[in-house]
Design a protein around this nucleic acid. Structure first.
Ligand SMILES: NC(=O)c1ccc[n+]([C@@H]2O[C@H](COP(=O)([O-])OP(=O)(O)OC[C@H]3O[C@@H](n4cnc5c(N)ncnc54)[C@H](O)[C@@H]3O)[C@@H](O)[C@H]2O)c1
Ligand SMILES: NC(=O)c1ccc[n+]([C@@H]2O[C@H](COP(=O)([O-])OP(=O)(O)OC[C@H]3O[C@@H](n4cnc5c(N)ncnc54)[C@H](O)[C@@H]3O)[C@@H](O)[C@H]2O)c1
Lengths: 209, 209
DNA sequence: ACGATATTGCCAAATATTTAACAAAAATGT
DNA sequence: ACATTTTTGTTAAATATTTGGCAATATCGT
C-alpha cells in the first residue's frame, strides 16, 4: 500500500471515524463532503482530498454512504483486528486507563498490568491482577503484545521501554514526560499532557496583552 | 505582540522548555542550535527560526545561554503567573489529574473539583473536597478560574461547557471524546486519547502488509 | 592583537499542506 | 427522456512550513 500518506492526513482519520460513527448512530444514510465539512470543521475540499488518498469512496451527485465510509475508515485505521495491550505503572493514571472500558470496544484488549511497587502488585484492577514488572519480560515472551502503555513515573519510563524493545512490542503509548529512545521499528505516541496546558497558558497570556 | 506565530511553532515551545529545563538541571551553561538539534530532534535551522519569532536570544559564535533561554521561553508560555484551575468530573481520570502534583509546579493551581454523583460529592481528593456541580456556577462567579479540565463522560461535557462559557472561564482542557461548541474567545485543548490509539493501530496495520 | 572558527539571525529556496476550480458523472425533477 | 442540479475526483494554485545558505558578528586560541 502507498506509504506516503502524510501525517497530517493520518491524524485526521480518527476524527472522521468519530463523526461518521455519530452519523451512523443517528441513522444518517449518506453525506456529502459539504455537509460533513459543516459538522466536522474541515473544508469540503480537504475531506475529499483526504479520502482520495485511500480510494474513491464517494459517488458524484450523491456523496458518501455513511456506513460504507465508516467501515472503510475503520479498515484504514486497522480496526478489523484486535490488539493486545499492557499497562506498565498502575498508579493514578495507569489505573484510570485500566478502568476505562471504551478502548476495548475499539479492539484494544488489556491483557496485563505491571508495577514495581509491592503494595500495588497483586491488586486486581478491572479484573486483571497487577504483576511485578520483573516478570514482564517473560510475560511478553509468552504473549504477543501489540501496544504497551507506559504510565510509570519519568525515571522508570526509559528502563521499561528498553524491556519492551527487547521483547519486540510493536508500539508504545507513552504518558511519562520524556522522549523515549527506542529502535526505529517501534512506533511511539507520546501524551505529554503538560504540553497542552502550556499551550493554553501561552494563549491566556496573549489575551491579557 | 506579534499575533501571527504559527500553531506549528507554538506547539513546539513546550518541548524546548522541557529540554532546556533538563540542561539547566545538568548545569549546562550554554548551547548552540546545532547541539540542541541533536538532543531535541528538530533541525538547527528550525530551532533558530522558531526562537527568532520571539526575539534574538542567542549570540553569534556563542550560542544560547541555557538559563536565559529557559526563562524567556517560560515567559513566552505565560509561566510568570499562576493559573486557577478546576476539575469537573471526579471519576477515574478526574481523580488521576487531581492527584497529579506536577501541574502545580508549573503554576497551575487546582482550586475546585466538581461532580454530580452524590457518592463522589463530599470526597476529599488531594486536599480538595468534591463539590456538587450544581454549585459550580456560583463558585466560578466568586473565583476567577482560568482553566477548567472537563473529565465528565461524553454526555455531560457540553452541558458543563455551557456553564463554563457563561461563567467566562478562559480556557477548557477537554478529555471527553466530543468537540465542544463554545464561544470564540474561549480556548479549547482537546485530549482525545482514543485518537492516539487509532494512530498506532493505523501504523501497526501498515506494518503487517 | 589577530586570524581561524563558531554560530546566530535572516532571507531565499524547497517541501508540504490546504484550498480552489472544474470537468465528468450521477441523481433529481419535470 | 432530458435538462438541471449536485457532487465527486483530480489537477492546479495558493499558503504554510521547513530547510539550506550565508553575511555579520562574536568567540577562541595563540
Ligand atoms: N496522573 C496524571 O494526571 C498525569 C498527568 C500528566 C503526566 N502524567 C505522567 O504519567 C505517569 C504516571 O503518573 P501517575 O500520576 O499515575 O503516577 P503515580 O506515581 O501515581 O504512578 C506511577 C506508578 O508507576 C510505578 N512505577 C514506577 N517505576 C516503575 C517501573 N520501573 N516499573 C513498573 N512500575 C513502575 C510506580 O510504582 C507507580 O505505581 C508519570 O510519568 C506522570 O508524569 C500523569
Ligand atoms: N479514564 C480514561 O482513561 C479515559 C480515557 C480516554 C477518555 N476518557 C474520557 O474522559 C472522561 C472521564 O473518564 P473517566 O474514566 O474518568 O469516567 P468516569 O465515569 O470514571 O468519571 C466521569 C465522572 O464524571 C461525572 N459526571 C458526569 N456528568 C457530569 C456532569 N454533568 N457534571 C459533573 N460531573 C459529571 C460522573 O459522576 C463521574 O464521576 C470521559 O469522557 C471519558 O470518555 C477517559
Amino acid at each position: 500500500m502507498d506509504n506516503s500518506i502524510s501525517m497530517a492526513v493520518i491524524k485526521r482519520l480518527p476524527k472522521y471515524h468519530r463523526y461518521l460513527k455519530e452519523l451512523l448512530d443517528r441513522d444518517v444514510k449518506r453525506i456529502s463532503s459539504k455537509e460533513l465539512s459543516e459538522i466536522i470543521g474541515f473544508t469540503a475540499s480537504q475531506i475529499r482530498q483526504d479520502l482520495n488518498n485511500f480510494g474513491g469512496f464517494g459517488q458524484q451527485g450523491y456523496g458518501y454512504n455513511v456506513e460504507d465510509l465508516y467501515k472503510e475508515i475503520g479498515k484504514i485505521l486497522g480496526l478489523t483486528k484486535t490488539y493486545k495491550t499492557v499497562i506498565i505503572g498502575a498508579g493514578n493514571l495507569g489505573q484510570a486507563l485500566a478502568n476505562y472500558t471504551s478502548f476495548g470496544s475499539y479492539g484494544f484488549e488489556l491483557v496485563g498490568i505491571f508495577d514495581k511497587n509491592p503494595k500495588i502488585v497483586g491488586l486486581e484492577i478491572n479484573g486483571i491482577e497487577v504483576t511485578d514488572v520483573d516478570l514482564m519480560k517473560k510475560f511478553l515472551e509468552n504473549n504477543d503484545v501489540d501496544i504497551a502503555y507506559i504510565c510509570t513515573n519519568k525515571t522508570g519510563a526509559q528502563f521499561v521501554a528498553d524491556i519492551l524493545v527487547q521483547a519486540k512490542v510493536k508500539a508504545i503509548w507513552n504518558f511519562a514526560p520524556v522522549d523515549l529512545k527506542v529502535s526505529e521499528d517501534i512506533r511511539v505516541e507520546n501524551v505529554h499532557l503538560i504540553d497542552d496546558l502550556l499551550t493554553l497558558s501561552y494563549f491566556l497570556k496573549e489575551q491579557g496583552e
